[in-house]
Design a protein around this nucleic acid. Structure first.
Ligand code: FES
Ligand code: FES
Lengths: 153, 153
DNA sequence: GCATAATTGGACCGAAACAGTACTGTTTCC
DNA sequence: GGAAACAGTACTGTTTCGGTCCAATTATGC
């Protein structure tokens, strides 16, 4: 369905909320603040900590804190942290595709991957917080897009 | 992992290959030509037929043919045909998100969805065939991943 | 210095979606 | 009438995802 995992959704919510606090924040507090179930938000924070997006402080009086300001964290970064690398197809530069020799379009998917990655990198968490979408997305237009109503059926 | 299904990959390969033939082409021929297993390519073609991307001719001497020229079929169209709608998060306009009231970022994901959809719509199957990437992607620049202009505020 | 409590870290398990396969039915040409 | 090819449906195995539980670590308080 080309939808990112719910964990990523939660991650963005938690990060934005975390960006509004200066102090270190614990998982239960963040859970109460966001409405996300405690174990889940804990897991998300854990992953984000391993990826260096948030810094963690273990032990009592511990918690999490943003490693970078909210404006410098792009959606792509969060997605890559949670969902793994953004590579739409299996036949990327690695190449475990079985039909690579015959398919004709060698590694042409990389172009698509780059396009998506750019689109995702252009949006930061600060843009999500308050929808001050600048005109940075102005270059992205939707062109024609055929195949709507099942022309032949 | 934010990767589209393998079926979609196969669909693009099959469609590009189909675009190189003027005649109707059968599933087994297409399978041999692309290296995709027969049953799988048949399934993909079937789905594409229901979505109106290819037209089918039943009976003996039947087969499939492109419904539109290769240049008019965007990647987004194929993805939507196979994988369903492109909606990255569960909390889109529908709104079955459980944390909508507390999360703060109302329906801000729609912006992200639109960005991806546009990026995907900007690439056609013809662009995949021979990497004649026009300057259509000129608008998609990689904006210095973290810490871009941060034009918000 | 030691016990205690709070909090993160990593591992485990069940569930759901996905990919692939097989079968049966309908349509068309020879 | 027979054969070839698409159409639709159903089933099964696999993988990934979402969620939960227990162990390691650190600050606090006595
Ligand atoms: S389908 Fe994977 S390389 Fe072409
Ligand atoms: S997380 Fe779904 S609406 Fe905010």
């Amino acid at each position: 369905m080309l939808k990112l995992s719910k964990l990523t959704d939660y991650a963005v919510v938690a990060l934005v909320r975390l960006g509004q606090k200066e102090e270190v924040t614990t998982s239960p507090v963040l859970s109460r603040s966001t409405g996300i179930p405690e174990p889940t938000v804990a897991k998300v924070l854990k992953i984000l900590a391993t990826q260096g997006i948030v810094t963690s402080q273990r032990g009592a009086r511990g918690g999490y804190r943003l490693a970078h300001p909210l404006e410098e964290i792009s959606i792509a970064t969060v997605i890559q942290a949670i969902d793994g690398p953004i590579s739409l197809t299996t036949c990327v530069d690695g190449g475990d595709c079985d039909a690579r020799s015959t398919c004709g379009l060698g590694g042409q998917w990389d172009m698509v991957n780059a396009a998506i990655r750019n689109a995702l990198s252009a949006i930061t968490l600060a843009d999500m917080k308050n929808h001050t979408v600048t005109d940075r997305l102005g270059g992205l237009r939707t062109p024609s897009m055929p195949g709507g109503p099942a022309a032949t059926a």
